[in-house]
Design a protein around this nucleic acid. Structure first.
Lengths: 159, 159
DNA sequence: GGAAAAGCGTTATATTATAACATTCAACAG
DNA sequence: CTGTTGAATGTTATAATATAACGCTTTTCC
């Protein structure tokens, strides 16, 4: 999944297609409903490797419709997708991004470029390890980790 | 600073006093102004080891005043305190907490108890290390890290 | 003492998110 | 195949968080 390194030139249509396919399989296997609306929102989230805001999604949903969609429409779809691990919320920027490996649970680390906004999701054992160590040293049980690194991606730092 | 482990019984007045003292020294040494308002906001942030929302601070600021304070008053003070490293923003819960070691720059990790809300700030070399490794593997330059772990603290997990 | 900058007050508004209730749709039992 | 039930969505309103913009006051510093 997440066919290519998003920093490199790639056919993003593949990413979208793969993400949607995996989502369909996953929901089918879990016996839950990936409705057209939810699928559409997931597709919009996957339009790029940049995080999108809920209201951006809302605007795109509304495109060409007679009646504008309302916030709960988007937030409910996002809630569903997040519960299923198909989408992550980046709390440091109030935005959402498609999960690049939704079938396995994980505490990912996000590298968010402040210039081009491209964001990659990384599972790095050493990070998970050090976080676990840190928590257990303090008798703390991690339920949910938010690890977001803002900075310059490899392309932007040289340009 | 941060006199005691906040999980343990402690005289929190010491924490507040120490935090304010260190802030005064630090601002004096940097030749910047810790005005009464800013100091008051810092004091309110330090009322406990739990993060506080901007509007909670606003409400407390307003206590006993004839005219209520307005949001920019609080946000400006918080912006100042954050720039000086005296306060951190926890983006996962939209709240603010006093920094427990403001004189050295750092990428801290926060352990946020979802039950009692007690939050501790940790500098853990292994975490910083693993994050740096992860970033450099991807040619990424970290400018700002947000590492927030939600879960159960050592007291709450047994109660 | 006076100019410039920093700090703060004030009003208005932007942005993000949720509550609550009505309606429609899908699943499934009988 | 139909009635019932719960899930999904539509709709209206509002909550919660944060910032823009402008003007007055205070501090700094020449």
């Amino acid at each position: 999944m997440s066919c290519f390194n998003p920093y490199r030139d790639h056919n993003h249509q593949h990413c979208i297609k793969d993400a949607l396919n995996e989502a369909r399989l996953l929901c089918r296997s879990r016996n839950i409903r990936l409705t057209p609306l939810r699928e559409r929102v997931l597709e919009l989230v996957w339009q790029s490797h940049c995080p999108v805001g809920a209201y951006e999604i809302l605007a795109e949903l509304t495109q060409g419709e007679s009646k504008p969609a309302q916030p709960p429409t988007v937030y409910r779809a996002l809630d569903f997708l997040r519960e299923q691990g198909l989408v992550h919320r980046l709390s440091s920027i109030n935005a959402y991004i498609g999960c690049s490996h939704p079938s396995t649970p994980h505490n990912s680390c996000f590298l968010i470029c402040t210039q081009c906004r491209t964001t990659i999701e990384i599972e790095h054992p050493a990070i998970e390890h050090s976080l676990e160590d840190c928590a257990s040293e303090h008798g703390f049980i991690i339920a949910d980790a938010s690890i977001e690194l803002a900075g310059l991606c490899t392309n932007c730092k040289t340009n």
